[in-house]
Design a protein around this nucleic acid. Structure first.
Lengths: 337, 337
DNA sequence: CGATTCCATGGAATCGATTCCACAAGTATG
DNA sequence: CATACTTGTGGAATCGATTCCATGGAATCG
């Protein structure tokens, strides 16, 4: 059961471990004879180098950490896929951690990533600068993706939260909506804060109602979207249009509308976040604020590779855009119209 | 930039590395004085043990490998989440690999997992016994999840593919359907094969039409579900009901129905696979064959932990069940009715 | 009170691969 | 033909933490 080591290989090939190692790592100073002997021995014994031992001696592990808040959120699942594929191109293995939208689990994973000596870290962080002090002070090359942390000197690649929301609000105003509800993300995340702020900016100074009761703050999970939908629909003067700040809350909210017999597209205009395939299947299909997840994931890896190489990386903001579909095609009904 | 080692800790605490190590790993033979000194030094220096060095010396890495075919498939995303949470309970870190429904990528990840010396592997495999010879011969404790490999002596936890399909077909027969189309999964996977076989069994000997044209074999990706829907709807005598063998193909097929103006639930009955939250939002909501993903993920970890401990693990089959919703409530229309 | 056990401790070996260094043999240059 | 330079090689040090073994001192026992 003991696994095959380079010593066994060297012994069988009749060379020293030094030579065997050189052959394996493609060092130029190796004779053809040694090369074939070692390769034959490797094949015969089924040798597989021990990554632990190699990483210990070299200072690099050829491993990237990826820390996401919720793998069940399709946006992050897509992001994980994009990051992993791009990391593979650079010869990196992706070590994946799911923080479960919990600061404690995030901290545990930071520890794990540091212990595993990943060469770099891509994270969609939560919490503030203080709670991230561990990582920020560790010197580990890090890139933030999707979310950023104010005041942290870490390059990031994130969506343009402002423009998408502005376009959506203007679109709804153009359709005649004056009571526009908003289901916000957690204010402990930059995306949650920026999107809420953008909503407030977009509303203020327009014909739209601007009372705080139209905002429900959730936590990016489906249940909070459902709670938000109930709260908004229970208002004495309910909104005629609703925006939700991520895909899971959109799902929760739409479910509640269906239960309560509120017809999306007819009784209520709805704008979701993130362009998930299933959203196009709804009847009517969902108007969404979309961004290019693949570009974000690939870009994050490329930035991190640059940071690891010691180059300066500029933070990037990727455009968001509104995709108008049936869920916002009609003008509002009822007293507000 | 050089990271803090146990030597630095020992030096600062005024003890040997042996004593420092004993304090850190909770060895009983340590004096309170040594303990506090070492703990203080660890805190002062921000010491984090090097997992590589530790794993090299011990034979264990406290790491599990998880190899899935497609993280963007919500079923596998849920599975990944369940596995990771349960693994954490046992003190294991999950090293995650996404094979992208490709046998080559799967092989690469097997190599990586072996090199990383994971303590055990949970995989939803593809290919046949020959292509998995590497893993099967390696002696690495392994558990298969969702999918199995015929003739491989590896414990597995998988869904009861047969019963769910039988219930679905009987349900459709009961509604009067006689032309029941089937969008099958790839025949290189056990789930693809077993579900197709179950469909054929369930159909044969009944009043339903049993010609091969009603079956379209896809690859568990959305595009193949779309292709299957086109093929079935283009038949001279198209089906009045369709089953799809996984969630992504269901999404693809439903999209095509929407495009072509085929009203699901009215013009066409549709049964999907896997109970994804978004499926309940469709109008009408989707009838699906569901299984308990969480139990499967947790069960896989528990089995693997047993295998690692040298215990025998019995393969398990988890029940599937049909959840009837609006997409199959109506009787068929048209000439076949 | 002497002998035995127990406990905390440090020195050194160890895990497996890489790499520095020294050396021998072969090739090129004056 | 002597010197310098290249090339392939093996011995041994190294990475950082763990653990075996030996040792000295305190506690326990007959």
């Amino acid at each position: 059961m003991r696994s095959v080591t380079i010593k066994d290989v060297a012994g069988r090939a009749g060379v020293s471990t030094a030579t065997a190692s050189r052959v394996l790592s493609g060092h130029p100073s190796t004779s053809p004879a040694a090369r074939t002997a070692v390769e034959q021995a490797v094949a015969d014994l089924g040798f597989r180098p021990n990554a632990q031992a190699r990483s210990l001696r070299r200072t690099t592990t050829q491993t990237l950490g990826l820390l996401l808040p919720d793998i069940r959120n399709p946006f992050f699942a897509d992001l994980a896929h994009a990051v992993e594929q791009r990391a593979r191109d650079f010869g990196y293995l992706t070590l994946f951690g799911n923080a479960n939208e919990s600061v404690e689990q995030q901290d545990r994973y930071f520890d794990v990533m540091l212990s595993q000596r990943v060469d770099g870290l891509i994270a969609a962080p939560q919490g503030d600068r203080a709670s991230l002090a561990g990582i920020l002070g560790s010197g580990l090359p890090t890139v933030f993706v999707d979310r950023v942390i104010d005041g942290a000197d870490v390059p990031s690649i994130s969506p343009d939260n402002r423009t998408g929301i502005h376009e959506a609000v203007e679109h709804l105003l153009g359709l005649g909506h004056r009571r526009i509800g908003y289901i916000a993300g957690p204010q402990s995340t930059s995306t949650g804060r920026e999107r809420l702020r953008a909503y407030q900016e977009a509303i203020s100074g327009t014909a739209a109602d601007d009372d705080g009761g139209l905002v429900h703050v959730g936590d990016f999970q489906a249940a909070s979207g459902a709670a938000g939908a109930h709260a908004l629909l229970d208002l004495a003067d309910p909104p005629t249009a609703v925006l939700a700040a991520d895909s899971l809350m959109s799902i929760g909210a739409i479910g509640v509308c269906n239960e309560r017999g509120v017809a999306i597209g007819a009784d209520l205009a709805f704008v979701g976040y993130d362009d998930i395939e299933a959203f196009t299947l709804l009847n009517p299909a969902l108007t969404v604020i979309a961004h290019d997840v693949d570009a974000m994931g690939r870009g994050a890896v490329e930035m991190l590779v640059a940071v690891i190489a010691g180059e300066a990386a500029e933070s990037r903001v990727l455009p968001s855009r509104l995709i108008v579909r049936g869920s916002t095609m009609d003008s509002p009904k009822g007293p507000s119209a």
